[in-house]
């Protein structure tokens, strides 16, 4: 260590900075190897296929931009993109808000905390068939629990999953309910905050609202940022929930036809893997741009205790 401090010029790799860089690359190396061997090839292949006609049987034929041209004139492309955007715009912030509040609630010093936490995580654990069946009963327009409760309040409930107007909100509701995964991440984030900060703040006489505002919230920004970025990436690719609840049809009348169901249909039902790949790459670009924007704007609100990362 002391040698580095001396002023004699050294090859960059031998400097402190150089050693740090080498360590950095070495630590990332396993992932890079895995990525190169298992992921990169298929990604390149699908990129290539997006410019081709590939029906899973015949050799792919080069089409140029024809898939993309067709895509932008396909009305179901817009329908499915709109359905997906609708869900992303509402489900991501609402899901984060709900799971953050749950995490705050579950981070208190109360009896039976472990049991509560487990309870709130159950929707993420039980098999999809069980929760889908349950939701179908809950959202049943005439006999369901939810509309029963609403009518008790004097409100005429909607048709939920059966209604074109309410099918997307129904799915969003279900997603929020099953956001136990991000709750767990928020909980871990809350536990990561050094207790000394709160102790110091209490000595300073800060009330709980202030402590939340000046300690919890700023220190939670990296976790919030993570859930936001992953929420956008994941929700754009929503598939299983909708598939199970609508029998794969994306109904009623395409109102829940999300982008990935349409990709899936083209790829494996209509034998149009090339077209499906072009759809996937359009989605890729959209998600990538949104993610980059999030990283660029992160420096204004995400608090890191380090200067080496952006976003």
């Amino acid at each position: 260590m002391a040698a580095v401090m001396r002023g004699t010029p050294k090859p960059w790799l031998k400097t402190l900075r150089g050693k740090e860089a080498i360590a950095c690359y070495l630590f990332i190396l396993p992932w890079i190897i895995g990525f190169t061997v298992f992921t990169l090839g298929p990604i390149i292949a699908s990129f290539g296929l997006s410019f081709m006609d590939y029906d899973l049987v015949l050799p792919p034929k080069f089409l140029g931009l024809a898939n993309f041209v067709e895509l932008f004139s396909d009305s179901l492309f817009y329908t499915s993109m709109w359905n997906t955007l609708y869900i992303v715009i509402l489900a991501v912030p609402l899901g984060m808000l709900a799971s953050f509040m749950m995490a705050l609630l579950l981070n208190q010093k109360v009896r039976g905390l472990a049991a509560y936490r487990t309870a709130y995580f159950i929707p993420s654990i039980v098999p999809a068939v069980a929760s889908a069946a349950l939701w179908l009963y809950v959202l049943q327009p005439e006999w369901g629990l939810l509309n029963g409760f609403l009518s008790w309040l004097g409100i005429q409930g909607p048709g939920w999953l059966a209604s074109e107007a309410w099918s997307k909100p129904s799915i969003i509701l279900l997603m929020i309910w099953a956001s136990g995964g991000s709750m767990i991440i928020f909980l871990a984030g809350l536990q990561n905050i050094p207790k000394e900060y709160y102790e110091a703040a209490e000595i300073d006489g800060a009330n709980s609202l202030r402590r939340f505002q000046y300690i919890t919230l700023p220190l939670m920004t990296p976790t919030i940022f993570f859930n936001l970025v992953m929420g956008v990436i994941g929700t754009f690719q929503i598939f299983s929930v909708v598939f199970v609840l609508t029998d794969g049809m994306g109904g009623p009348v395409n109102s829940t036809l999300v982008y990935l169901i349409y990709i899936y249909r083209n790829a494996f039902n209509y034998f149009r893997m090339g077209f499906a790949s072009s759809m996937a790459w359009v989605l890729f670009v959209i998600i990538l741009v949104l993610t980059l924007i999030q990283f660029r704007t992160a420096r204004f609100w995400v608090h890191y205790d380090t200067d080496t990362v952006e976003g």
Partner: peptide, 19 residues
């Protein structure tokens, strides 16, 4: 590299399944 890492999550698996 980090952006590349994130971007691996952005391409739906259904189109990379066959390769």
């Amino acid at each position: 590299i980090f952006m590349v890492l994130l971007s691996t999550m952005m391409l739906p698996g259904v189109v990379t399944l066959i390769p």
